[in-house]
Amino acid sequence: MQGVGLMNELDPITGSSLSYQSVETPFTQQQLIQEKLQKLSCSQLKGLSKGQTQLCNLYKDHIPFIGRGARMGIDECQWQFRARRWNCSTFDDSTVFGPILNIAAGVVHSIATACRDGQLSNCGCSRAARPKNLQRDWIWGGCGDNIEYGYRFAVSFIDVREREKNFPKSSPDQGRKLMNLHNNEAGRRAVIRKTRVTCKCHGVSGSCSLVTCWQQLSSFREVGDYLKDKYDGGTEVKINKRGKLQVRNRKYNLPTAEDLVYVDESPDYCVDNLSTGTLGTRGRVCNRTAPGTDGCNLMCCGRGYNTHKAQCQTCTFTRDIHTCK
């Protein structure tokens, strides 16, 4: 559940303006928020693991953007699953993997974006380890891309939570840990997979004798679409005696680093279940005529639905709204 507690804390202040203050207006709303954030210590943030708190102290200015990335991930998840029985409303990391990897993807995306307008002044530069003389390195070969920085930061920040857990080798918990690590990686890679290479020719007379290419971030919706496809094509795995994940059904291909895996079959999400953390589909809006998962038949698990008349205040248009019993 990385980032969720954190997100709740920081949700109102994840606007882009928070790390800024203006010369002309010394005491503004922005500054108040800024000061609040300064006082907020990382140990007060809910939902951070021990390693994440340490990272939070190191990279304090990143926290709003992690929060924003997490928010983006969950929003996207809810949008993608709006027509499913489970709509990303709440979750537990043992059975569902959608939101977690969406958060990993969201963090990569959000950090990479924040680096680009200069809001994050300590985004990384080099492809290699931290250089001794940054300015000299920058003159020699420029800086690496911000996506790479977002990716690397997300690796350390998201994965540290799983890595600091210790389970006996080949236990189911270890399997979940490995699954989460694998899916986090898949989520991060989804952002990179969906980048587009754009090139510009600027050789002699603008010819293509000299080409420079760069990776352009796609909108997060595209990343979400991609991950949804991967979710639907997830591979069931189990932990073996050597403490490694292996494909449960040998007929299927080995999942790549970009594919999603799961250890437990998802529940049907029909009724609320505290142990799996699902809310059920009671009260969800459904489509009476649709044959798909958003149709009332499938969505309400055969329990039937209620129909209300919804009427607008300003227009004379009535519409039937169907909600599950």
Partner: peptide, 9 residues
Amino acid sequence: PLPREGILL
């Protein structure tokens, strides 16, 4: 250019 690693390049 953009600042990197806290340094104004």
